[in-house]
Design a protein around this nucleic acid. Structure first.
Lengths: 225, 225
DNA sequence: GCCTAGACGGTACGCCGTACCGTCTAGGCT
DNA sequence: AGCCTAGACGGTACGGCGTACCGTCTAGGC
């Protein structure tokens, strides 16, 4: 019998129970029981009751770091924008669960803080790479932090608008995201902007199969048009 | 007998015990016992064990809001800078306790998150006022957040340098703070800068007594010279 | 067919944070 | 002066989180 993984069952059970009884009224034991696992297994999969609300955070963080690692000072602008875009894309694909999480975090202060802690990790990752592109000297540290914060703030701004339903479709969200990134670039001096004008660079796409193409097509069209 | 307040005794007991045994190895009951109060009273004074590490946070937050409330779009630049300066000044006056807190937060992740949560409140306060000066429309919200984050980031940058001992004296810290605020202003467009050149405005000082003058003299001199 | 490593469920415990209790004391009213 | 109410206090009890540790079971290599 093709059972889903224990981790996935725990996440589903948690979100269902949180929606039914609320976060505080749901105990870890309740979640474990509905997921069909022991309380011990819950804490093996997630460090705390709060962490189960953001099950893909670790994976997203490493994806961002990997994308930033491939960029150079010359390709910093597009690299930073794409790395932030990974997070947006993940939420867009997550769909309804992202909306449920948004409602949860809005009503539970502890989860709001947990989310901010995760966002802070994004900022640190961005700042670390940007600082490296700027030379890594103490004099450029503040500037790197300012840029990183601006990028993450811009991203969150668009993400929240989509979560609230102010941006109806995914492509509309992506359009707003590019506008926000442009505004961020106009307010802070991201390194490499003038050195590498976007028009001069050819676009290289790596697609595994047709589903990738379908999924990315709107973005590709937008970038080219 | 002129006993110090219970709140103050709790804070002193907590910092002493954290330095002796470490944060995790100190229980709330330990703190209450050394302070000569019941465990109940501890939680009446501080919402949690973490909050006792930042006893003046609430007061600082209201001081910032009060300072920002007196500013207008014309005086936004100096208002924002001074409001952030209130926090720096508080830490400088706090002296050794600020250093102890810094060592604590560096080694205890839970306290690091608590500190970030407090910083986030500062950002929100700044963003709210700046947003008002920008008109309070949805279009200016992102810009207000960007400016607020930049100001707070700049402040924290200087504060951390002082806490680490990289800035020896208080006046050196204040000088670095003004430099950081200038860099922030050069990266983001703080409203009111060009509309109200600093040279054209007279300086109005309100001093309660001579100690105020002594304390503020270095800043006054720097501003005028 | 055996044997070892790793994942599992179960149990016990320390401590946090909350709710609620009765007690005590300062300060206003008659 | 005597009373009386409001608020702060210490004490107790409890639910729940997160950790440590235990014995058990199962998959995979020799």
């Amino acid at each position: 019998m093709p059972e889903s993984s224990a981790r996935e069952r725990i996440v589903d059970a948690a979100f269902d129970l949180f929606a039914e009884r609320g976060y505080d009224a749901t105990t870890v034991e309740d979640i474990a029981a509905r997921a069909g696992v022991g309380r011990t297994t819950f804490f093996r999969q997630f460090r705390s009751k709060e962490h189960v609300v953001f099950p893909d955070h670790e994976q997203l963080l490493t994806a961002i770091a990997a994308r930033l690692a491939t960029a150079t000072p010359r390709t910093a602008v597009v690299g930073v924008s794409e790395a932030a875009g990974l997070v947006l894309q993940h939420y867009l694909e997550e769909g309804e669960r992202a909306r449920r999480r948004y409602r949860l975090t809005r009503s539970v202060p502890a989860l709001q803080e947990r989310e901010r802690a995760g966002i802070r990790q994004y900022e640190r990752t961005f700042a670390r790479h940007i600082h490296g592109w700027l030379g890594g000297t103490p004099e450029t540290l503040l500037r790197a932090e300012l840029i990183a914060n601006a990028v993450v703030t811009g991203h969150n701004h668009v993400l929240r608008a989509w979560l609230r339903g102010q941006l109806a479709t995914a492509s509309e969200a992506r359009r707003a995201f590019r506008a926000a990134m442009a505004e961020v670039e106009s307010h802070v001096d991201v390194p490499g902007r003038e050195a590498a004008p976007a028009e001069a660079l050819p676009a290289v796409l790596v697609l595994r199969d047709a589903s990738d193409l379908d999924r990315l097509l709107p973005q590709i069209r937008d970038l080219l048009g």
